[in-house]
């Protein structure tokens, strides 16, 4: 009898599971998608214009040409030029002004879409460093994908800007590759409860994008404001679903008028590299 009870216990405790299934989804008329994250980093700044795609199809967006894309502030107006299809670039000599509110206007197929965002200065990245991870802290599954006995992650400090309403986005990745350059690997937070504080030893890296000795890690830090952090939070709540306590699915916010989806962010940013020795 004891054996029977034990078997029943084990059986019961192991009975929750997940599996991949085939499902048919309704498709809706495609919508215009505009995504823009413009910074003052020394790299090409661009806006993408495209259309939504079938949810279970490839993620590759359907980019569109012949849109008129204009970025303006209270004193200047810049017309963005289309480079590759659907990517519209700012002039190389464009420089952002902190505290200025910028408006992005996109005209496409006789419809005008506009969004505004204020550019905030970004706190300096301080004490950029790295730490070695203890493999004991990782699960067996994670350790199996690590092919080195020594793995590292980046750390940094920063002084939060006094005054509520700030929010920050940070990400690190291996220099010269796109490895890790995805929102899934970035982190963001606003200054609720921590306004004006000094932060030490913030870690970003995770086990699936560790660094090894000799690697150069790039660490980027953006001042995005609370409203954009809410946009990222919307996305996060949509892509990390699976708990029975999740709220109902809902469209993520957009700051575009005119019926487009996507978001326009313009932010001060900091970038630093560090070699793992």
């Amino acid at each position: 009898m004891k054996k029977l009870i034990f078997i029943a216990m084990i059986f019961s405790l192991s009975s929750c599971f997940m599996d991949r299934i085939e499902i048919d989804l309704n498709e809706e008329n495609e919508k215009v998608v505009i995504t823009a994250w413009i910074t003052d980093l020394d790299e090409p700044q661009f806006v993408t214009v495209g259309k939504t795609v079938n949810y279970l199809g490839p993620i590759s967006q359907e980019f569109v040409s012949d849109a008129i894309v204009i970025l303006s502030n209270s004193t200047n107006e810049f017309i963005l030029e289309e480079g590759t299809q659907g990517k519209y670039f700012l002039p190389h000599d464009w420089t952002g002004i902190y505290g200025e509110t910028y408006t992005l206007k996109v005209e496409f197929e006789n419809t005008t879409y506009t969004a505004s965002h204020t550019m905030r200065s970004c706190p300096e990245l301080l004490n950029v460093d790295y730490v070695e991870y203890d493999l004991d802290d990782f699960s067996d599954e994670d350790v199996n994908i690590i092919d080195s006995f020594h793995v590292y992650g980046t750390t940094f400090d920063f002084q939060e800007t006094p005054g509520e309403g700030d929010a920050y986005y940070a990400i690190d990745f291996l220099k010269g590759t796109m490895q890790g350059d995805s929102m899934r690997n970035g982190g963001f937070a606003n200054d609720d409860f921590v306004d004006g504080e000094y932060f030490e030893g913030i870690e970003l890296s995770e086990v699936n994008r560790f660094y090894a000795i000799g690697d150069t890690a790039v660490l980027e830090f953006y001042s995005i404001g609370e409203e954009s952090a809410n946009f990222l939070m919307d996305i996060e709540s949509e892509i990390f679903r699976g708990s029975p306590f999740d709220p109902p699915p809902a469209n993520v916010r957009t700051n575009f008028t005119g019926g487009a989806v996507g978001y326009f962010i313009i932010s001060g940013a900091q970038s630093q590299e560090i070699i793992i020795k």
Partner: peptide, 24 residues
């Protein structure tokens, strides 16, 4: 339940688009 009817890419993630709430 509400299932997505489309998506777009933002920083490497598929952002879902929904139409009618609880239609599925």
């Amino acid at each position: 339940v509400t299932f997505p009817t489309g998506k777009y890419d933002f920083l490497g993630v598929a952002v879902p688009i929904y139409s009618e709430r609880n239609a599925a």
